[in-house]
Design a protein around this nucleic acid. Structure first.
Lengths: 204, 204
DNA sequence: ATGTTTCCACCTAGGTGAAAACTT
DNA sequence: AAGTTTTCACCTAGGTGGAAACAT
């Protein structure tokens, strides 16, 4: 249950594939960021209940870095340790990205799964649409915002604002995986990831 | 320019890839329908201007068979001839299919190209979402409907209704191509169509 | 005969981790 | 030394027409 800003109302939000997220979270999720953008795996998918059928809503996502610290993976202890360097030049959160361009009514919102599977993470500051720019080697958690639009005339004014955070979706942003266990879990669970290069190299 | 029903207002609609459509229309476009559904090529893509920024709209597509006649391709004359049989058991038009589930505001409508590329044509009456059931060997033209929704409370009541038809997008529904010139033009212009089977068979 | 269905080789399109090359 | 970029083999996912089998 999520309570709204400027509102006593609540909406209910459920994270899809919670078991999968938890498996990664136990090890310490890493998400690769590239210049061209890389999808998240697991992908963020949620279901929302409790929105008003006849109201319009917009959905945003951004990524919060709670300390803006740069981290380093310590192989001996298999842990992430802070380098003490804080990236103060950038904001602690990424830009907000809107899932749909258009506001969507509460009734249609409840009919469907809200999926962020097409979202791509990048370290390229000149991002195009559908991409979010993050700093490498930092800790982030995705934050979803559901905002009620009072009406189309006043679309800029967002009435009820709901922020949704699932702690088990936090991750370290990396340009190459640090923890081998994460690599193996990605290969095991992501249909696109099979890491077959080792085998094919043997043939030559 | 398209004038609305119950309205003196007009909206302006433009067909994308008009040259491509015209190339096919000159020969006599054929669209394959299958049990699982087949995309149209060319795909229907339009641009709409003149909608009200602060109003909500829904977009539908259906397929009109002007005479509901069954046709036969006469190879000698390279023409489609009516068999005289009218398929009176079915309506002259297909079911209306909604492009987006949710109504969309006029301002966002004008920002984007409305694409029906994912729509699939089928001859299977038990269709699932995103598919349209047609009768084989009939003449059809796609009809796009833009309908203004008075407000979310009265979503069922459509105020201004605009029907859009581009004559150059009419086609014959087939389960296999009849005119070889259509086959060749599809192969030439559709990136997915390369009809290489003949070559590979020679290798064996 | 004539129209339909199924299967398939051949594509497009694009999402992976591995390795090597590159940068600082 | 440590992090980033590029390239690539290997996938998933799915859109084509052709041919053969099937149906009527």
């Amino acid at each position: 249950y999520v309570r709204g800003e400027n509102s006593n109302k609540t909406i209910q939000v459920e994270l899809h594939q919670n078991d999968l997220w938890t498996s990664f979270h136990r090890i310490g999720t890493e998400m690769i960021i590239t210049k061209n953008g890389r999808r998240m795996f697991p992908a963020l998918r949620i279901k929302i209940w409790g929105t008003e059928s006849l109201s319009l809503y917009k959905i945003y996502i951004d990524f919060i870095s709670p300390d803006s610290n740069k981290y380093r993976y310590h192989y001996q202890s298999s842990r992430w340790v802070s380098t003490g360097i804080t990236d103060s030049s950038t904001c602690s959160s990424s830009e907000q990205t809107c899932l749909f361009n258009a506001p969507i009514s509460g009734s249609y919102l409840q009919e469907q799964t809200i999926s962020f599977e097409k979202l791509k993470l990048t370290n390229n500051p000149t991002t195009s649409s559908g991409k979010v720019c993050l700093q490498s080697m930092q800790n982030y958690y995705p934050r979803i915002t559901v905002a009620k639009v009072s009406d189309l005339q006043k679309e800029g004014r967002l009435q009820e604002i709901y922020h949704i955070i699932f702690p088990q979706t936090s991750f370290m942003s990396v340009t190459a995986y640090q923890n081998q266990n994460i690599t193996q879990l990605k290969i095991a669970r992501n249909p696109f990831a099979k890491g077959f290069r080792a085998k094919s190299t043997l043939r030559h």
